[in-house]
Amino acid sequence: MTVQYTDKPIPRPALWGIIYRSSGSLWEGVKEEKFLIQKCKDCGKILHPPRPMCPACHSTEQEYVEASGKGKIYSYVTYNKSPHKAFKAPYSVILVELDEGPRVISNTVDVKPEEIEIGMPVEIAYEKIDDELTLYKFKKAG
């Protein structure tokens, strides 16, 4: 568990907005430890972040498919001073390119900041933060 949390509340997905609700299904899936990505029913394009219309064919019919959870680290940063009272420094934030294409921001669970490298293969892992919040994270693959 490389990210240490303080006792302060951890920022969590908004999900109740009247402005943008499309990411609701993704977070429901994460609660059941499944990583769902949005796919356009008409042209099959993978859409991330999830949205109400497909930019390629303008269909408004989407479905959610379970991703393999495999990917490679595309980029990363390391906070030596914590910018948010819920996080203890130092901690790393990684950008993972999933095999299915989308790139997602996350944290590693078993890799220390100094060991992280771009291109490192990783696999999804889930971390229950509290009873309403489960976050998808990544562990070393293979």
């Binding site: 907005g17 109400p52 219309m53």
Partner: peptide, 10 residues
């Protein structure tokens, strides 16, 4: 029952 982004696009 929809979000504003969805209605704007329609």
């Amino acid at each position: 029952g929809r979000d504003e982004l969805d209605m704007a696009c329609e």
